[in-house]
Design a protein around this nucleic acid. Structure first.
Length: 647
DNA sequence: TGCGGCGGCGCC
DNA sequence: AAAGGGCGCCGCCGCA
């Protein structure tokens, strides 16, 4: 039996900024109503004051809710009903696992029910769930009745959608529960550090804005404003304007992003006529401010538990709906800057004591603060963090997934512990490996990173710039061609993928394999099965004259859109989706076997433990042993023990 | 006042 | 013919 349930609540605690865990535990949080149904039964609603329904209180079966963590926490902390975590089944996770959007309203729009948005629900929440300006709650019975109707409607919609979708497999449901356990555990924030970072950053921010206001004579008050770009545009020469020009989908755009700013600052040194010094000053200020991490420290501090300083609920199961990778929410631990302070403990001491922070020459305080983001996450007293990440997992998976005998040569490089980048350069330049210089090795690295998923000159160029490699267009083209000649397994694999998914679309209900994956079109969605047994799909796929298109969950429709935005499937993307998805299968597999995980970042796992040596060994065993479905896949990791998170 | 578009940032 | 894709958050600004 399934219990379908949805809560509406109210609180003085702001859910968005403080997160579901603080919200549910806040003393002011109350349930407004709970709508529920058993199986296909009628939807009814319980309201506080009425006797709580026993059949809910003592329910032992599966509880389905949309974003079920919220319902779980309300049951636990507000109603004091301790359902087991494994009873919960999240229908938003189910939607994402089926490559649909996570929000209840969007799943409906995505599935083509209607594209209309309904703002009334949100409006009711604003009216009833959030205190009014005078601090009291609105108890209006008419609004409350409308709220109950909405709550009941949500239960019905959730039930309809969930029943129309493929169910989560046992493995997926288990992995969801593991995700929730990690969310419950949370990660400890060095709150004094975060709070002092916020203070330093706000002082710095004021200083930067003051400089900008002065230099621009009051024309620019916020460096982040588009007006800043216009102000710069009006004051630079033709060379500089060229540097600012970018093309997006064929359209000309002016940009002032990081790479543009770097180029403009270089030009300013060469030629002040092109970029005058006051303009350079403003650009420098933008550089200093834009990437300021104050917002991130703020968020961490607000999300951390008021009692034990742990940040909970950071991970969204299958948040990357195209591949099933986890995404990170709130604190978004998936995009913490990698660069960390060299001596984080010393910087930390100086900061919490309020001493001056002295950045290296030419750098700003915000720069130092940025480097303290990862180190702001720490183990509990007496424990350490064990951090392990897979080496080049995607560069291993793609050849393995091709299942082409010619790819064995690549896998053997990994098996024998040789340097894959050197091997790649050797293939590209037709040289023996011992003649590969570090410059050539770097080109080999860029080729591996950019060419594996069918990328061409454009992809190579973009990636190369990140690594300081500038090649002429013809050299880039030659390199890409050489990579493809040296890795024909890849070219063949992309081709096979394209054939397989195209044939699948032409032949409803029949399976077509390429490499280690199998496609099947059921008449609506184009499904594919990964070696782990997990399935993914390209929703509402269509074979059009110029290729395959599908509804893309990650692209939210514009306000006036009449249908959900569609993307084009091409072989490189198919290849990449598979590789990322299977990398995620490896991660899921490891998370089942490793205890006390507090963080994971796609190819990295962090454990908090008081037995670091044992855990180090165990993580190495688990992460380097491929699951049953991946026999022969060479895996290796790098690991270290830390007292502050870092890179 | 809230919403949504836009440009921007960072990570894997 | 060629094609970097996968995420989420921040701040600003125009619009209704």
């Amino acid at each position: 039996m399934i219990l379908w349930v949805d809560f509406e609540t109210r609180s003085r605690c702001d859910l968005l900024s403080h997160g579901g865990y603080n919200y549910a535990q806040d003393a002011s949080t109350d349930v407004l109503c709970m709508s529920y149904a058993f199986d296909d039964g009628d939807v009814t609603t319980w309201i506080p004051g009425q006797p709580f329904p026993d059949e809910v209180r003592h329910f032992k079966g599966q509880i389905r809710a949309h974003n079920a963590a919220f319902e779980r926490l309300i049951f636990w902390y507000v109603l004091q009903i301790n359902f087991d975590i494994t009873q919960f089944y999240c229908t938003a996770s189910q939607a994402r696992a089926n490559c649909a959007p996570g929000s209840l309203e969007d799943v409906g729009r995505f599935s083509g029910a209607t594209m209309r948005k309904d703002h009334r629900g949100k409006q009711l929440i604003r009216l009833l769930s959030i205190p009014r300006a005078d601090g009291t709650f609105n108890n209006d019975p008419t609004l409350m009745a409308e709220m109950i109707a909405y709550c009941e409607q949500d239960v019905k919609v959730m039930r309809t959608i969930s029943k129309a979708m493929r169910n989560l497999s046992d493995d997926e449901l288990r992995d969801y529960h593991i995700n929730e356990t990690i969310n419950d555990r949370g990660v400890l924030l060095d709150r004094p550090l975060a709070d002092s970072a916020i203070r330093y950053a706000s002082v710095e921010l004021e200083e930067i804005e003051r400089i900008v206001s002065e230099v621009t004579k009051g024309a620019i008050t916020s460096v982040r404003s588009p007006r800043m770009r216009e102000w710069v545009q009006e004051r630079v020469g033709p060379e500089a304007l060229k540097l600012m020009t970018t093309y997006k989908e064929g359209e000309k755009k002016m940009s002032i992003d990081k790479s543009v700013r770097a180029n403009l600052l270089l030009l300013a040194e060469e030629n002040p006529d092109e970029v005058p010094s006051d303009v350079a000053d403003v650009i420098q200020c933008a550089d200093d401010l834009w990437a300021s991490s104050v917002a991130k420290f703020n968020r961490l501090s607000q999300l951390a538990d008021v009692e034990d300083d742990r940040v909970r609920g950071a991970f969204v199961f299958a948040g990357g709906s195209a591949t099933g990778r986890a995404s990170s929410y709130g604190a978004q631990v998936h995009n913490f800057t990698r660069r960390c302070a060299k001596e984080p403990d010393e910087v930390r001491q100086a900061m919490v004591r309020g001493h001056a922070i002295v950045p290296k020459f030419g750098r700003r305080v915000t720069d130092v603060l940025k480097g303290m983001l990862r180190p702001a996450l720490i183990p509990a007293k007496g424990k350490s963090l064990v951090v392990a990440d897979w080496n080049a997992v995607e560069a291993r998976l793609t050849p393995w997934l091709s299942n082409d005998p010619r790819a064995d040569e690549v896998l053997d490089v990994f098996r024998s512990g040789r340097d894959i980048y050197v091997r790649e350069a050797a293939g590209i330049f037709h040289l023996p490996e011992d003649e590969i210089t570090s410059d050539k090795r770097q080109i080999g690295k860029v080729a591996i990173l950019s060419c594996g998923f069918g990328g061409g000159v454009g992809a190579f160029g973009a990636m190369g710039r990140n690594y300081g490699i500038i090649l002429t267009e013809s050299d880039a083209k030659r390199t890409v061609d050489a990579w493809r000649r040296a890795n024909q397994w890849a070219v063949n694999y992309w081709q096979k993928l394209e054939e397989a998914y195209t044939r699948a679309l032409r032949n409803t209900g029949r399976e077509f394999s390429a490499g280690r994956v199998t496609y099947l079109y059921d008449g609506v969605h184009l499904w594919y099965a990964l070696p782990s047994g997990r399935v993914l799909c390209y929703p509402f796929a269509k074979l059009e004259p110029d290729g395959v298109t599908y509804a893309k969950a990650a692209w939210k429709p514009a306000a006036d859109a009449t249908e959900w935005p569609r993307a084009r499937l091409w072989k490189g993307l198919a290849c990449e989706n598979i590789t990322q998805a299977v990398a995620n299968d490896l991660l899921r597999h490891s998370l089942r076997l490793i205890d006390d995980v507090i963080l994971h970042v796609h190819d990295e796992i962090v454990v908090e433990t008081d037995k670091p040596d044992e855990v180090l060994q165990q993580m190495s065993d688990v992460m380097c042993t491929p699951p049953d479905w991946a026999k022969g896949l060479p895996l290796s990791i790098e690991s270290s023990v830390m007292l502050r998170y870092g890179k």
